[in-house]
C-alpha cells in the first residue's frame, strides 16, 4: 500500500517538518489577520463614507479572487512589475494576511453591529456610564461571539496554506512528492501511502480546532 516508506530513514519526521512549515506560515498570518482585522472591523462601524467605500472594494476583491491568484500576483507580479524580490514565505504571509484581515474585519463588524440597541439603552437605564456599558455589557458579548469565529479562521488558514507549494515552498505536500520520487524503485505504491498520510495529518491538525470552535460556540450561545 505504500505506507512502509514512512518508516524508512527519517521520512515520517520530514513529513511532520513539512506540516510544521505550513503551520508556521498560517500562525504568523493568523496573528496579523486577527490584529488588523479587529482594527479594520472597528473602523468599519464608524460609518465614515471613505472608509466604507474602501473597505467594501477590499472585501469584494478578497471575496471573488482565489487565494492562488493573489499568491501569483504577489510572488511573480511584484517581482516583474515593482522589481521587488520577495521570498516565497514573505509573499505567502502577505497574501494570507490580506485574505485573513478581510475575513476577520467582516466578523468583527458583524459582531459589533449585531449587538441590539436595547443593550445600550438598558445599561443607560441602569445608570451605567459609557465606559461601564462597554466593559460590563458590550465587550463580554462581542468576545464570546468572536472567539469561536476566530478559532474557525485558524482552521481555514491552515487549509489555505497548503497552496504555498504552488510557489515553491517546501511544505508537507512537496516533501511528500520528494519522498515518492526518491522511493520510486523500491516502493512504487508510495503515492497512495504518502498522500493518505498527509490527508490524515491535515485532518488531525484541523479537527480538534474545529471541535473547540463548535464547543465554545454552543457553550456561549446567548
Amino acid at each position: 500500500m505504500g505506507f512502509e516508506v514512512l518508516l524508512k530513514g527519517n521520512n515520517a519526521l520530514r513529513l511532520l517538518g513539512g506540516l510544521g512549515v505550513a503551520m508556521y506560515i498560517s500562525m504568523i498570518s493568523v496573528v496579523i489577520s486577527i490584529t488588523l482585522g479587529i482594527i479594520l472591523g472597528m473602523l468599519m462601524t464608524l460609518k465614515n463614507p471613505v472608509i466604507n467605500a474602501v473597505s467594501r472594494v477590499y472585501l469584494e476583491i478578497v471575496r471573488i479572487m482565489p487565494q492562488m491568484v493573489l499568491l501569483f500576483i504577489v510572488y511573480f507580479g511584484a517581482t516583474k512589475i515593482l522589481g521587488l524580490n520577495l521570498s516565497a514565505e514573505v509573499s505567502a504571509v502577505i497574501v494570507f494576511s490580506f485574505w485573513g484581515t478581510a475575513e476577520m474585519s467582516d466578523l468583527v463588524r458583524g459582531a459589533l453591529t449585531g449587538i441590539p440597541a436595547i443593550q445600550y439603552e438598558s445599561s443607560m437605564a441602569l445608570g451605567m456610564n459609557r465606559l461601564q456599558t462597554y466593559i460590563h455589557v458590550i465587550i463580554p458579548q462581542i468576545v464570546r461571539r468572536l472567539i469561536p469565529l476566530s478559532i474557525n479562521l485558524i482552521t481555514r488558514m491552515i487549509k489555505t496554506t497548503s497552496l504555498v507549494m504552488m510557489i515553491g515552498i517546501v511544505e508537507v505536500l512537496k516533501v511528500g512528492q520528494q519522498i515518492i520520487e526518491a522511493n520510486r524503485k523500491s516502493s512504487p505504491n508510495a503515492a497512495f501511502g504518502i498522500f493518505a498520510t498527509i490527508f490524515i495529518l491535515y485532518f488531525l491538525a484541523c479537527y480538534p480546532i474545529s471541535c473547540l470552535s463548535k464547543y465554545l460556540e454552543k457553550k456561549w450561545e446567548n
Binding site: L163, I194, F195, I198, Y202, F203, Y207, S210
Partner: peptide, 23 residues
C-alpha cells in the same frame, strides 16, 4: 462531513489523482 471540511482541496485532489491509481 468532518473529514472533508477539515482537509484542504489540494490534499484531497492529490490523494484522488496520484494516490488512488496505486490501488
Amino acid at each position: 462531513v468532518e473529514l472533508f471540511r477539515n482537509t484542504p482541496l489540494l490534499v484531497q485532489l492529490f490523494f484522488v489523482y496520484f494516490g488512488l491509481p496505486k490501488i
